[in-house]
C-alpha cells in the first residue's frame, strides 16, 4: 500500500496538486463546507424517519426536499476528497481513519438509500418499524462520524495506535 502511495505521489497530477498551495486549501475548504451540507441534510432526513422532525410532512416530502442537497453536496465532497487523496496519498493511505471513513461512507449511502425505500412505502403519519428506526439512529451516527473521522486522519497514530500504518 505504501509503495503504491509513494508511486502515486510521484505522478504528474499528484505533484501538480502538491505544488499548488492555494488549490489544496481550496479543496479542504470546499470539502469542509460540503461536509456541513451533507451532515445537515442527512440529519433532517433521518430525524424525520425517527419522527423527531417535520412530522407534519410525509417522509417522501422531506426526502424530496433534502435528498438533492445530500447527493449533490456528497458528490462535491467525494470529488474534493479524491483530489486531496491524490495530493497526499501516503498520508491518506497509511491512515486507519481514512479507510474507516470510506467504509462508513459506503454504509451511509447504501443504508440511507435502503431506509428511504422502506420509509417511502409507509403511509403518511404512520411510524416506521423498530428495525427501521434503529437503522435510522445508526445511520445518523454514521453520517456524523464522517467529519469526525476526516479530522482524525491528522492524528491517526495517536488515536488508533497499532491500527495506524503510519510510522
Amino acid at each position: 500500500m505504501r509503495a503504491f502511495a509513494e508511486w502515486l505521489s510521484a505522478t504528474a497530477p499528484s505533484v501538480a496538486i502538491q505544488s499548488t498551495f492555494w488549490f489544496i486549501r481550496l479543496l479542504q475548504a470546499t470539502h469542509l463546507l460540503t461536509a456541513g451540507v451533507v451532515a445537515g441534510a442527512a440529519a433532517m432526513i433521518l430525524l424525520r424517519a425517527l419522527g423527531w422532525q417535520r412530522n407534519d410532512e410525509s417522509f417522501d416530502a422531506v426526502w424530496r426536499r433534502f435528498s438533492p442537497w445530500l447527493t449533490s453536496s456528497l458528490a462535491v465532497m467525494v470529488a474534493t476528497g479524491i483530489a486531496q487523496t491524490l495530493g497526499d496519498p501516503v498520508r491518506e493511505f497509511t491512515s486507519f481513519s481514512y479507510w474507516l471513513k470510506l467504509v462508513v461512507l459506503l454504509l451511509c449511502v447504501t443504508g440511507t438509500a435502503l431506509l428511504a425505500r422502506k420509509a417511502g412505502r409507509v403511509a403518511p403519519g404512520a411510524r416506521l418499524s423498530v428495525a427501521a428506526r434503529l437503522l435510522a439512529i445508526a445511520l445518523l451516527l454514521a453520517w456524523l462520524a464522517l467529519p469526525l473521522l476526516g479530522r482524525m486522519i491528522a492524528y491517526d497514530r495517536a488515536i488508533w495506535g497499532g491500527l495506524s500504518m503510519r510510522t
Binding site: 469542509l32 463546507l33 461536509a35 456541513g36 451540507v37 451533507v38 451532515a39 445537515g40 441534510a41 440529519a43 456524523l144 467529519p147 469526525l148 473521522l149 476526516g150 479530522r151 482524525m152 492524528y155
Partner: peptide, 14 residues
C-alpha cells in the same frame, strides 16, 4: 478537535 470540527460543520449545515 475532531468533535469541534463535527460541531462546526453541523452548525453550518443546520
Amino acid at each position: 478537535e475532531a468533535t469541534h470540527v463535527l460541531a462546526a460543520v453541523m452548525v453550518f449545515g443546520t
